[in-house]
Design a protein around this nucleic acid. Sequence first.
DNA 1: AGTCGTTGCATTTTT
DNA 2: TGCAACGACT
Length: 784
Amino acid sequence: MDAIFKNLTEAQREAVAHVDGPMLILAGPGSGKTRVVTHRIANMIQQGVQPWQIAALTFTNKAADEMRLRVNALAPNQPVWMGTFHRFCAQQLRRYATMVGLQENYSIYDTSDSKQAMKRAVLAAGVSTTHASPDQIASAISDAKNRLMTPEMMLGQTLRPLDTLAAKVYPIYQQQLLTANAVDFDDLLLHVANLLRENPELRSEMDRKFKYILVDEYQDTNLAQYAIVRALSIDQPNLAVTGDPDQSIYGWRGADLNNILDFEKDYPSVKTVRLEKNYRSTPNILRAADQLIRHNRRRKAKDLFTDHPEGDAVILRMFEDGYQEADGIADEIIRAITDEGMKPSDFAIFCRMNALTRSLEHALRSRSLPYQIINGVEFYQRREIKDLLAYLHLINNPSHDVALMRVINTPTRGIGNRTVERIRDFADYNAIPMLEAARRANEIEGLAKRAITMIGKFIKIYDRLAIKANSSLEDMIRYLVTETEYEAYLEKTAVEQQDANPMSNVDELITAAVEFDRQHPDDGSLEAFLEQVALVSDTDSIDGETDRVTIMTLHASKGLEYPRVFIIAVEDDLLPHKRSKETDAQFEEERRLLFVGITRAKEWLQMSCCKRRAIRGDTRPVIPSPFLNELPLDEMKRIESTGNRDWFDEEEDSYDQSYPDSWDLPDEGEPTSDTIAESAPIVAPAGFEIDEISQLPQEELAAAVKPKKKNNVIVAGLKTGADLLAGGAPPLMSYREGTQVRHAEHGEGTIIEVTGRGPKRTAKVQFDHGEHSFRLAYAKLEVL
DNA sequence: AGTCGTTGCATTTTT
DNA sequence: TGCAACGACT
């Protein structure tokens, strides 16, 4: 038996061996799904399927990268198409752009771009924003797009007042996008879905071309994605989807659970394979997950089992407040590192909202524990990066109005709001791009002479830049920075305390551009670069290489696994979130969210909640999450934590009595109350062990943490451009050939070569006494 | 054009 | 509590 079928279970083998016809793989968490998918692709190729007829669609770049890596190990260098839905659509849309009224160099508006565009559309539509903000209207339109509704359809059947407003803005927004030769994220899918729906010949051509289609995380598909996949699987219904209804957590973004629940109805001849055996977690963890998710009604029943040994009981722990929760978690991590030889990167902390990460950050930092937060200000959201990218966008697509509005007065050149408004109105009135309107400034009524002169100056600068459109990205950006005197502008407008040196971010962008040029010697066009930038996100940059604790939202945790997991704030109104309790569907999605979090843990899991929590300034008492009652509490280890906020408190053995009414879990009689009600104050609530409080002084604990690097705290937002594009490298700073650096031992030198990607990125440095190579991720090289 | 103070907002966010 | 966005002011 060859490598492809070795070490597979019966169910896995069955799925891998399947070649033709529809297939549904119901894959529980940790069931080796990626393994099955990749092995299956390899098998199909071995069975004679042409690799270019296979398209594997994922939701994230990270998932696609992972897949590519693993397929490559089994079947090297096969031209199988692997990538995200959005990238797939972007690519097809380049080819057929004119059919939907776009040019092939169309731009992709990111969320903030479309927000800008939406404001303008709302204004142009003359809709009052007193009852609905542009954001709300935007999300109503987005919902409509996800449901494949055209503006006309929306006008036909509106129900909610918000939708009535949205229906008025929608056509105008769409028209303005077309004029700008741009699409938003939703449009990528929508346009392609419409193309397929309206052009039978094109549809059958593409159906033939992508003979085999695989969709990952099928439970997260929305109607547009569903329509695309279906349209490509009519004549050649070789559609294989993998997913888990229990891990559908993007309903609020239009994902439709019915897509996976009804797959068997859509394709009656479907072969269904269930992957239920879990290779990730201990039975303890699985039982908690299983019992919880059993409370959902809308699901496909599934058994979760594993061969793993029992392992530690799942912990449910209660803290006084959010600060103690954070401290308690940090201390536990340090304890496990000291006592059990764990590494910081073995730990992950999940929470419902980003706002909850603050106290964690503080607690970890004060103990010198290295950590990373997944979220934060993305590199591409930084002002200086957005500015430069906007110039690039405008060079690539002169109709990109959002970019024009951003750069026309950046750096400041005397073109004020009023002036921009007049240009915009003129553009709207004539249905032309704003750049063109600006060129015709002398036709615009009410513009001062001075303004016209200034606009003329801008146009001159722009035209000079535009000539560079075909040079290398690096040259273009450097030229752009010089030509616009951007550096001087940055210095002048530097915001204190914000970012120390924004110019280093500019260097980052250049590094990313150089890298892109290098990786795409042939198609390294501006257009491809901008598309790449538009379609990467910050979750693509989770760093698994360096040794740090990872903090993230439950949403971001999907698809990942960690030896030890903490889930914080398992509290009512937070998980389930206050705003997600109205419908059963929402409530069940919240339950799935916790399910996803639990099943990330391999060997150890702690869920925690507090008695009171500071939220938005004031501290409020907290009710534990109703989900807690759905867990196998009897077999879990329940800890009631108090005290320990003062390390040197002599009396830390006595318990804070001010909140005696601790664990009143709602509903379903919980083994508590009467014990605490009258009995001795020192007794913890029934069912809870007293937590032993670590007595080590703080410095000693900090010393116990291995890497005593100076810069060991990695805060959100330090991700770099090259990092994002390469998918997961630590900051590269401005290391490139010719850079002068200093090394602690070798002294000063010059970088003579930079090779490799991501964490493997290496610089060869010439010192007085010889050459040395350093991994940039780890070496202490100081840029001079 | 840029500063400053007030107001209103606060769930998650694969692309 | 912490911010982004807006409007009044200089």
